[in-house]
Amino acid sequence: MASVGIQIRDLSVKYGDKPALREVSLDIPPNQIFGIIGPANSGKTTLLKCINRTIDFVTTASVNGSLLVGDQDVRRMRNVYELRRRIGMVFPLPVGLPMSIYDNVAYGPRMAGVRQRGELDVLVERCLRQAALWDEVKDRLTLLGTKLSGGQQQRLTLARALSLEPDVLCLDEFSIAIDPVTTMKIEEVLLELSREMTIVLVTNLVQQARRLAQNVAFFNSSRLVEVGETKQLFTKPREQLTFDYVTGNIG
């Protein structure tokens, strides 16, 4: 895994006529947790979709500007599947695929061509350990992924995201549907992982960003309002809007 940062220049996205992102320019440094906060509908999820180009599946979307992961412009990449393997994604709602836990985690590597059982065994154990799920499921790897609890399914999603050893890990409000204990476990994992990969953490929970992120960007109504070091953004933000949001007066 390389250390890749993300450079976004003048990114604008429209769904039909409605703007979702307006001329966003942002630098995400490598190997740290980068927080993105903001109220609903401010464009945070759209930004993530642009990073791994799942925005392509939204037929009404039009995208302008450039987004570089490492040194490659994702919009110009021909092999978009390659891109998506380099970027892991965790959604708000936990999704366990209807297959065994083992197959869940092995899915990505299998699609990418890994066939050897031995390799997959090592990989599955490693990813489940990284996602803090191994101890709970090591005796029942054949259990259906959909039968796990919400918190376990979210960690399973995380394990899947890690299975392809991504350069960038994106999490979109990963904790809203799971219990606090699991959230804590995952947060510990993220801190550990940030030493070797770039993590983009989109969250509605301002305190979570404060805990985990080294730098934070604040979005509002499809615009990037402010970006800076966590400590600075939360104690002495430059914009009034930012101040209002982090103190809970709006959003």
């Binding site: 895994m1 990505g108 990418a112 890994v114």
Partner: peptide, 9 residues
Amino acid sequence: RPTPARRGT
């Protein structure tokens, strides 16, 4: 570790 992501299709 091997890097499965580099293998591709």
